[in-house]
Design a protein around this nucleic acid. Structure first.
Length: 276
DNA sequence: GGCTTATGCGCAG
DNA sequence: TGCGCCTAAGCCA
């Protein structure tokens, strides 16, 4: 078997940590060297033609948005959406399989992007526009949680919806949203105005730590945090989440059946006993 | 082999 | 509110 498609270490859930991980990977594998960019599928043909052969100066992420900054001020903006994925491919590149929107080939590494919601060529001003629409990203060093608090503390929307709103906090997806609310014993339907400052501070601090674990480990782990006892306690096969996708199963704390409902089109999971 | 489902989000109506 | 995007893992037969 000469399967060139390498084993992939991509996180299963593309929330913010996935994009930061990709930015780090792409910078390491493609950075500071010319990259051959193409669009086998054709839908990104013009964008690919504009950057191919140019040096990738930097890859960065803000929330769920990924930016490839090429020399000459051109930027490739990617949002994976629900299905988008980058594969990791060893050279030489095999023939494209399926709908490959963007193919990147560096000196000793390649990557195929399939199924993204967004893959477009933009300039720095447009990057700034994208970022201006996003809330603070817990994975960025400069993240200012007080900006999120300013929005939440005034809102009459449920906290379960606010945490998913990318203009409030950038990078939180359905897994982190549900897990964070359980960890802090907060009912997802409680309104933003009814969250107190202490609760928010604790959630924000926790979120920063949880997402940093996701970034480091490449998967979302919200129980058995390695820093709980100062040593790695996660082992393959061990449960990694408290409530996410556990509808009907017993709460790991009190045994009550985990409930599920749809809030603004997304699946909510919570323990009706523990979360008030 | 086929069916269901999912992490996101913009848009139509 | 619900659809469309259009991938792929997980499950069942």
């Amino acid at each position: 078997m000469s399967r060139r498609q390498s084993r992939d270490h991509r996180p299963r859930m593309p929330e913010g940590h996935t994009l930061h991980r990709l930015a780090r990977l792409h910078q390491r594998k493609f950075g500071r060297a010319p990259v051959i960019v193409s669009s086998p599928q054709g839908r990104f043909a013009d964008g690919a033609a504009a950057v191919t052969g140019r040096v990738l100066k930097k890859a960065s992420a803000w929330g769920k948005h990924l930016f490839h900054h090429y020399e000459g001020g051109r930027v490739v903006h990617v949002h994976l959406g629900l299905y988008g994925k980058f594969s990791e491919v060893e050279l030489p590149m095999p023939l494209p399989v399926g709908q490959v929107r963007m193919r990147m080939v560096g000196a000793d590494f390649g990557s195929d992007l399939r199924g993204p919601t967004v893959c477009e060529l933009i300039d720095q001003a447009e990057v700034d526009d994208v970022i201006a629409r996003l809330g603070p990203d817990p994975l960025r060093r400069d993240a200012d949680g007080s900006l999120a608090w300013a929005r939440i503390s005034k809102s009459r929307r449920p906290i379960g919806a606010l945490l998913m709103d990318q203009t409030v906090i950038a990078g939180v997806g359905n897994v982190y949203r549900n897990e964070l609310l359980f960890r802090h014993r907060i009912d997802p339907y409680r309104l933003g105005v009814n969250i107190d400052a202490g609760e928010f501070d604790a959630m924000w601090t926790d979120l920063v730590a949880l997402m940093a674990i996701g970034l480091r480990r490449g998967k979302i782990i919200t129980i058995d945090r390695e820093d709980d006892r100062g040593l790695p306690s996660y082992a393959p096969g061990r449960p990694r989440t408290w409530v996410y996708r556990r509808a009907g199963e017993p709460c790991r704390v009190c045994g009550t059946e985990i409930r599920t409902a749809v809030l603004e089109g997304r699946n909510l999971f919570w323990c009706p006993t523990d979360q008030k």
